[in-house]
Amino acid sequence: MNNDRIDQIIDKHQGEASSLIQVLLEIQSENHWLPKDALRRVGEKLQVPLSRIQHIATFYKAFSLVPKGRHEVHVCMGTACHVRGAERVLDKVQDLTGIKPGETDLDLKFSLETVNCLGCCALGPVMEIDGKTHGKLSRAETEDVLKSYD
């Protein structure tokens, strides 16, 4: 992500220090993670010390300070999904991507996380990719879904 794009995002928020979290969220959603240079740039433009930005960026789970893949895979491990075989879905995803929860693959294609409930228990077992919900997954369907992303 280049500095021009970061400046654009900051200007959209009138360069207000109080918009720090909004600015970080936009960078996060476009870039999938917050590189140190980006944080430094934001700090200079918004006049917020880096220590404070670091505090905020590490406080919220929505932010990542390490590179994330193009697609964020969330496998639900909540009670309903668990009894309907979330473990099988997770195993399949781990097999296919070669990564464990919290990790990102080398091609920066997928990042895998487990979550505790996505709020649609009737669809269990559920996997969410980039905000799109895939429900009632079997092993085969899990594979088809993952393969449909590039």
Partner: peptide, 15 residues
């Protein structure tokens, strides 16, 4: 560091 020295050399991380 932040209030008296205004240097912000040390901060909290995580929660």
């Amino acid at each position: 560091c932040a209030e008296v020295k205004k240097l912000n050399a040390v901060g909290f991380v995580d929660r």
